[in-house]
Simulated scan of single mutants.
Amino acid sequence: MKNVKITILKTTLDAELAAQYGVPGLTACPMMREGQVFYADYAKPEGFCDEAWKAIYQYVFALAHGDGKTLFYHGDWIAKPNVAICSCNDGLRPVIMKLEGTDEEAERSYVPVR
């Protein structure tokens, strides 16, 4: 299993939806910062948002176990192998992330329960 590099590309705020549905003074995500980098295998990295992890963990898992050459969804989503661009589930202030498979072996070893 390989490590997956998670880079925070963008923190956003949909001002129109936030004005309609958000609490007063809502801002872009206070937990994540553009340029922040995390490394993960099958477990959520320290300091990473729980809700964002729920949105991306299946892609992290796939990249950690992939061959480094395969395009997601048969090549009709991302043009670069071993990369996924994802966002968290916050509809008012989504965080956009780049996930990249690496050649670095993960420190943890996953042992399935039998």
Rank of each mutant, 00 (worst) to 15 (best):
K5C: 05
K5Q: 07
I6M: 11
I6E: 08
I6Q: 08
I6L: 14
I6G: 12
T7S: 10
I8M: 02
I8K: 01
L9K: 01
L9P: 02
K10S: 05
K10W: 01
T11R: 07
T12Q: 13
T12P: 03
T12S: 14
T12Y: 12
T12L: 07
L13K: 04
L13N: 11
L13T: 03
D14L: 00
D14P: 01
A15P: 08
A15M: 07
A15L: 06
E16Q: 06
E16K: 05
E16G: 09
L17G: 10
A18N: 05
A19N: 03
Q20S: 09
Q20G: 12
Y21R: 05
Y21H: 09
Y21S: 14
G22F: 01
G22R: 04
P24Q: 14
P24D: 14
P24K: 02
P24N: 15
G25K: 03
T27M: 09
A28F: 01
A28M: 09
A28G: 12
A28L: 04
C29N: 08
C29L: 02
C29M: 07
C29H: 03
M31S: 08
M31E: 09
M31V: 11
M31T: 06
E34Q: 09
G35H: 07
Q36D: 08
Q36R: 06
V37M: 14
Y39R: 13
Y39M: 05
A40T: 02
A40G: 04
A40K: 02
D41E: 11
D41I: 01
Y42C: 07
Y42A: 03
Y42R: 11
K44R: 08
P45L: 15
P45T: 05
E46I: 04
E46Y: 11
G47F: 00
G47V: 00
F48G: 11
F48L: 10
C49Y: 09
C49P: 13
C49K: 05
C49A: 10
E51N: 13
E51D: 11
A52W: 00
A52S: 09
A52D: 01
W53L: 08
W53Y: 10
W53K: 06
W53Q: 08
K54D: 15
K54G: 07
K54A: 12
I56S: 02
Y57G: 14
Q58L: 11
Q58N: 14
Q58C: 13
Q58P: 09
Y59F: 03
Y59D: 02
V60G: 08
A62Y: 05
A62N: 07
L63N: 08
A64R: 00
A64E: 03
H65A: 12
G66V: 00
D67L: 06
G68E: 09
G68I: 01
K69R: 10
K69L: 04
T70G: 12
L71K: 06
F72Q: 03
F72E: 08
Y73Q: 15
H74V: 15
H74G: 15
H74D: 12
D76S: 14
D76F: 15
D76H: 04
D76I: 14
W77I: 13
W77Q: 06
I78S: 05
A79C: 07
K80C: 03
